[in-house]
Simulated assay, not measured.
Amino acid sequence: MRIPGRPAAVLVSCAALAALCGCTVQPQGADGKGRSPVHVELPSSRAPDPTRTAEDGSGGSGTASGTSAAKPAQPMQPMQPTQPAPAVLWSRGDSGPGVRELQARLRQVAWLFDGPTGSYDDLTEQAVKGFQGKRGLPPTGETDTVTWRRLQAMTHRPGTWELYLMGGQPAAAPDPRCLTGRVLCISKNSRTLRWMVDGRTVSTMSVRFGSQYTPTREGVFHVYWKSRHHVSTLYHSPMPYAMFFSGGQAVHYSYDFAARGYAGGSHGCVNVRDETAIAQLFAQVRNGDKVVVYW
């Protein structure tokens, strides 16, 4: 049985209760069928935290909760053109006046302590490598155009005395006895050895001789024995690439000469400081070739 006035009051109360509970009310149409529900969102009772940003997915402006804001695209870096490698001027095994000047300049900046020889040996290679590494250049040990310009900027043009310091002078004029045949032509005055064939100089290298009490003999001799890995039986010191010409005296490579230069002396032998040069000489000289030692 329907009571007048009560249904309207009940409906109003229910509608108010639904609004407070966050529910939805489904109105009835004239035909009594339900329509699509209307969703009602209640405002949040907590104010947003201005210290939290959209990037951490916890509020703020611009993004929904739990998602990160899109980062701006980074500008593309322009491609750098490939620089060609600097040209190599001199490297180990080379020789000539350019190498001699290089060595003299390395002495000026205290990277080489021996006198210039004109031959790019292991000491020169190590000096160039040290110079390069100190200045942030690739430590190749080869003298390229960049290394050479840097060294020139730090040094002065060496004079004759600097270029031929410590006995590295140009070879003296050959003795007349050196002008025929195959000859090791050795000058005590210029402290040099010429390897000559039929009056033509094939190669030249710096040498040192015996001390006052063990002098190197002068005269004309012949190579009578070659010993590649010789060790002195008297002094127990290595004598690589030994070419004996008078008793126990020989032309050979000297580790001491390479390290100390003319600060030392031999026990009568003719010492060579350039290992590359004497290795090539050892391969060419034959037993019976002439040796001329003169002042």
Rank of each mutant, 00 (worst) to 15 (best):
V99F: 06
V99A: 06
V99K: 08
V99R: 03
E101L: 10
L102D: 09
L102G: 09
Q103R: 08
L106P: 09
L106Q: 06
R107W: 11
R107D: 12
Q108A: 15
V109A: 02
V109E: 02
A110G: 02
A110Y: 07
A110F: 02
W111V: 07
W111R: 14
W111Y: 14
W111D: 13
L112T: 03
L112C: 04
L112H: 12
F113H: 15
D114R: 15
D114Y: 11
D114W: 05
G115Y: 15
G115C: 13
G115F: 15
P116T: 14
P116A: 14
P116C: 14
P116D: 13
T117Q: 11
T117F: 08
T117D: 10
S119D: 10
S119V: 07
Y120Q: 01
Y120T: 00
Y120L: 03
D121L: 07
D121G: 15
D121N: 14
D121T: 06
D122I: 13
L123Q: 11
L123N: 14
L123V: 11
L123P: 01
T124K: 03
T124C: 11
E125D: 10
E125Y: 03
E125P: 03
E125F: 08
Q126S: 12
Q126C: 00
Q126M: 06
A127M: 09
A127P: 09
A127Y: 01
V128E: 04
K129F: 05
G130N: 07
F131T: 07
F131C: 08
G133C: 00
G133Q: 06
G133T: 01
K134C: 00
K134E: 12
K134H: 09
R135Y: 07
R135E: 00
G136C: 01
G136M: 01
G136I: 01
L137V: 04
P138S: 07
P138D: 05
P139A: 10
P139D: 04
